[in-house]
């Protein structure tokens, strides 16, 4: 690939992910159709199967699905710099909007009516989170043992106020050892 072609691809990545970043409302999997249209159909950077894999991996790793997908698609299109450009441009619109709002509009949020609206929005967000729990339950909880892990992590976070980092490490250790034990005992039987 020529130098000119490389730079052209980086610019394309920048423009595409900036565009998606500006219209990616709703978060999480809501970005899937936008990525499909841009990266699969318009630019033909990846196939639909690859996008499915990318979304699955992006979901399992820490961080936002959209940013993680941008890193992976960027890397596949143009290596390390592709990943860097795609990741940066994917977060740029949100970053700029947040700074602008914090600088220029924060004081207006003390208005009593605005405060009430925010209180309402937070209640709505709590309802949305409850709803996403029901959607994620099927992929997160596949065995009876997983219900115990859900209970343990909820209790650790809410009742005992344990730092989420330690909760994750503890649950990861428990979950991994359990899966390993099941795998070993199955292999011995077979």
């Amino acid at each position: 690939m020529g130098e000119k072609m490389k730079i052209k691809r980086l610019i394309q990545l920048f423009v595409s992910f900036l565009k998606i970043g500006m219209i990616a409302f709703g978060g999480g999997y809501a970005v899937a159709p936008l990525l499909q249209k841009e990266a699969v159909e318009s630019r033909e950077w990846i196939t639909n199967e690859e996008l499915t894999d990318i979304m699955a991996i992006a979901q399992t790793l820490p961080g936002a699905i959209f940013t993680n997908s941008a890193t992976m698609i960027g890397y596949r299109v143009s290596g390390f710099f592709g990943a860097l450009v795609a990741t940066t441009s994917s977060v740029l619109p949100t970053f700029i909007i947040t700074i602008l709002v914090t600088v220029f509009f924060w004081d207006y949020t003390d208005n009593p009516i605005v405060k009430k609206a925010f209180a309402g929005v937070l209640v709505g967000v709590a309802a949305l989170i409850l709803h996403s729990i029901t959607k994620m339950w099927k992929s997160a909880v596949t065995k009876r043992f997983d219900i115990l892990l859900v209970a343990l992590s909820s209790a650790g976070l809410l009742l005992f106020k344990i730092n989420a980092v330690y909760v994750i490490l503890g649950i990861a250790a428990l979950g991994f050892s359990r899966n390993l034990t099941v795998y070993r005992s199955r292999r011995e039987k077979a």
Binding site: D146, L152, S153, V167, I171, G175
Partner: peptide, 11 residues
């Protein structure tokens, strides 16, 4: 193994 913790975080 770590997936169930996401539910706990959401709760």
């Amino acid at each position: 193994g770590v997936r169930p913790v996401v539910i706990g975080l959401l709760v």
